[in-house]
Write a protein that binds this DNA or RNA. Structure first.
Lengths: 151, 151
DNA sequence: ATGTCTGCAAAGCTTTTGCACTGAT
DNA sequence: ATCAGTGCAAAAGCTTTGCAGACAT
């Protein structure tokens, strides 16, 4: 799917969500959604705030936090905590569920997929009578580059 | 292994670690280790601080954070971030590696083990040339009790 | 017109740091 | 006798809240 197509679709999804939840369709909210979907990879609130400030958007951290919560609710973004207080986010539409390798030396985050995780989730859901809605598998260690660097 | 035996062993491990790293063997550090190993389940710094204050230990948050870092370094405790800023910790000696079900309604944390995760880690380590040192698999959803409550 | 959402700034929470004192070596 | 480790309090960093004004409805 082309980037434009994706942005049109997520904008529609967001609009439907706002209408359904009797929330206002403010330009700030759409600007934030748009920024997020034009960006590749993981971001945190502060870096997104700086980036939008630099582009002369008039946004506040408060609105970013608020909008990010809305986008989480309608599953247009995902939130991650890779072992630190500061949360990271990433777009999730047209971006299949994946897990993360986190380099404990350079903080780089690499994505990977392994279908067997779904199997584990199915077994655990049955065995523990727990209704699973999402998962996070983070593998911490050293990326290829840092292994070399530290030798 | 009995609790006393475990506490003797971890105290020894901690002492060795402190000596090896030329760190002082202070009563505060041992008091904290002792508190942690007398406690079942997950704790955060603040609740451990309150608990120790109530027992009339003379400890500060700073020392708790400092000591927890030392205990992490010698692998006597593990640190978790279950999707919030506040970190949680648990003792890890004589406590086999496990993963967590986190109830998004009541914040309860349930442990589970699935040996297949090791298999996934082995495959990914090879495929991605990433040296994995630890992992965290968190399954988020509703526990049995909250499923009932919310119906 | 109404009342929600906004930016801004201030407050809240968790964690870290600075400083003078204590106590392990 | 040293000086690392401590408690305390203040600072720092991320997130939330309060408020007056703006704007989507």
């Amino acid at each position: 799917m082309s980037e434009n197509k994706i942005i049109n679709t997520v904008t529609e999804i967001f609009t439907d969500f706002l209408v359904k939840n009797k929330q206002r369709k403010t330009p700030e909210r759409y600007a934030i959604l748009n920024e997020i979907y034009h960006f590749e990879g993981h971001f945190d609130i502060e870096s997104m705030y700086i980036k939008m400030k630099n582009k002369n958007y008039r946004v506040s951290r408060a609105t970013l936090y608020n909008t990010v919560d809305l986008l989480l609710e309608c599953h247009l973004i995902r939130k991650h905590q890779f072992g630190k207080a500061q949360a990271q986010y990433e777009k999730s539409y047209s971006n299949k569920q994946h897990d993360h390798l986190v380099c404990t030396s350079c903080d780089k985050v690499i994505e990977f997929c392994d279908p067997r995780i779904q199997g584990i989730m199915n077994v655990i859901e049955q065995a523990m009578e727990f209704k699973i809605s999402r998962h996070a598998l983070n593998l911490y260690g050293l990326c290829k580059e840092c292994q070399k660097k530290l030798n």
